[in-house]
């Protein structure tokens, strides 16, 4: 591959069509940010549905909100924020070539993500047991106001899609953890971990908005 770039060493991670690693990393990061833009607008559709239905029937949202347990929601928020911190520290360590510490932080992030999903599992099973489900499956009778299932449709759509993204994030972190353990990531080349970190922080940011909107109404 005759490339006219002056420097001799052609690092293995540099793809042929980029002229230097700096350009490749910036391109990868810009691509990731644009992907995060699509994620924001994907969740945006659900936020819009939430805002519209809440503006039509605020009282129903307040009544239905009493069914959600704020402590569990707050615990989940704290768990996700700490997982964001450990993720950021993992990136910092790999920048300083401390692969072992970085792997440890990644495992911590995975652990916190697992805790988040477990708490979600309890919340969902509690609601399924009570019959507070979206649409036709709604059999709960404790909430007055017509069509109370709308709140749970919005709730399950938002937290369900967010949960799927947490699951996807755990897969991505696992992949980056495997690359770190294999010494493929180091201070010269850590783009995959950085991008997974960006994705993870966005998932955390979406939960930061979900928590007050769903759990702390009125």
């Amino acid at each position: 591959m005759a490339t006219t770039s002056t420097h001799s060493a052609h690092p293995d991670y540099l793809q042929h069509h980029f002229s230097d690693p700096q350009q490749q990393q910036e391109a990868a990061k810009l691509g990731m940010w644009i992907f995060l833009l699509t994620e924001v607008l994907l969740f945006g559709g659900l936020f819009c549905a939430y805002v519209i239905y809440r503006s039509w029937d605020p009282q129903l949202f307040i009544n239905a909100n009493k069914e959600l347990s704020v402590p569990l929601g707050a615990l989940n928020t704290i768990v996700l924020i700490t997982s964001s911190v450990t993720m950021a520290l993992a990136i910092r360590c790999v920048q300083l070539n401390k692969s072992k510490q970085s792997a440890a932080y990644l495992i911590a992030t995975l652990a916190f993500a697992a805790v988040f999903l477990v708490v979600k599992y309890f919340e969902y099973s509690h609601k399924i047991h009570l019959g507070q489900l979206p649409g036709q499956f709604y059999t709960y009778t404790g909430i007055e106001g017509n069509n109370p299932h709308i709140f749970f449709s919005v709730y399950f759509m938002m937290t369900g899609l967010h949960g799927l993204h947490v699951l996807g994030g755990m897969g991505a972190i696992g992949w980056v953890l495997w690359k770190t353990v294999k010494r493929q990531l180091h201070s010269e080349y850590y783009t995959p971990m950085e991008n997974v970190g960006l994705y993870w922080h966005l998932v955390d940011m979406i939960w930061i908005f979900l928590f007050p909107l769903l759990y702390l109404i009125g």
């Binding site: 549905a49 519209i52 239905y53 979206p134 649409g135 036709q136 499956f137 017509n146 069509n147 299932h149 709308i150 449709s153 919005v154 399950f156 759509m157």
Partner: peptide, 17 residues
């Protein structure tokens, strides 16, 4: 989801618009 799980967000009979 409207067709499969009947979540009723767009279904007028269930308060959707």
């Amino acid at each position: 989801l409207e067709r499969v799980a009947g979540i009723g967000i767009f279904d007028p009979a269930m308060g959707g618009d």
